[in-house]
Amino acid sequence: MKAPKTAAVAATGAWTDPDGYRMPSGEVHAWTPGTNQTLCGLSIHRSELRRFSHVEWVDVQPATGRDADQVSDVCRRCAAAMGGRRDERPWKRTDPRP
Rank of each mutant, 00 (worst) to 15 (best):
T16Y: 05
P24Y: 11
A14I: 07
A30P: 03
E27I: 13
D17N: 15
T94N: 12
A14S: 15
V9K: 08
G84N: 06
E56C: 07
R51C: 13
A80G: 08
P18H: 03
A68E: 07
V60Y: 09
G83P: 02
W91Q: 09
A8Y: 06
A7D: 01
S53T: 05
A3G: 05
A68S: 15
V28C: 05
R85L: 13
P96K: 08
S53N: 10
V74P: 10
T12F: 12
A79C: 01
Q61R: 07
P4K: 14
D73M: 15
C78W: 01
T64M: 04
P62H: 09
R22H: 12
T12W: 10
R66F: 12
P96Y: 04
E48K: 13
V9L: 07
C75I: 11
V60H: 10
P90H: 11
T35C: 05
W15Q: 08
W15D: 04
K92D: 12
R77P: 00
A11I: 09
N36E: 14
D19L: 15
V55T: 15
K2C: 01
E27H: 11
E48M: 06
R76H: 03
W91G: 07
G84V: 06
K2G: 00
D67W: 13
A81W: 02
W15S: 14
R93L: 15
S43Y: 02
P62L: 10
C75Y: 11
K5F: 10
G84Y: 01
T32C: 01
T38N: 08
R46K: 10
P4R: 12
C78Q: 02
R76D: 08
D95N: 13
R66C: 09
T35S: 13
D59I: 06
A63R: 03
D59H: 15
D73S: 05
R46G: 01
R46W: 05
D17P: 14
R22A: 13
T64G: 03
M1N: 06
P18Q: 09
T16P: 05
S25N: 12
V71K: 02
A10F: 12
M23D: 11
T32A: 10
A11K: 09
S47G: 04
G34W: 04
H54C: 09
C78V: 02
P62N: 02
V9M: 04
A68C: 14
R89V: 00
N36M: 06
V71Y: 02
S53W: 01
P33M: 03
R46Q: 10
P24K: 07
S47P: 01
E88Y: 10
S72M: 12
P98A: 04
R76P: 00
G83M: 04
K5C: 01
V9C: 00
A80N: 03
T64S: 15
V55S: 13
L49Y: 01
E48I: 03
R22V: 08
Y21D: 14
V74I: 15
H54Y: 07
W15I: 11
T94A: 14
Q61K: 12
M23R: 15
D67S: 14
D69L: 13
R89E: 05
A30E: 05
K92L: 12
R46D: 11
E48D: 00
R86L: 10
W57D: 02
C78D: 00
P62F: 07
W15M: 03
L49C: 04
V28P: 02
Q37V: 01
A8C: 13
L42R: 00
T32S: 09
A14D: 12
C40Q: 09
R76N: 08
Q37P: 00
A11F: 00
D17G: 12
P90W: 10
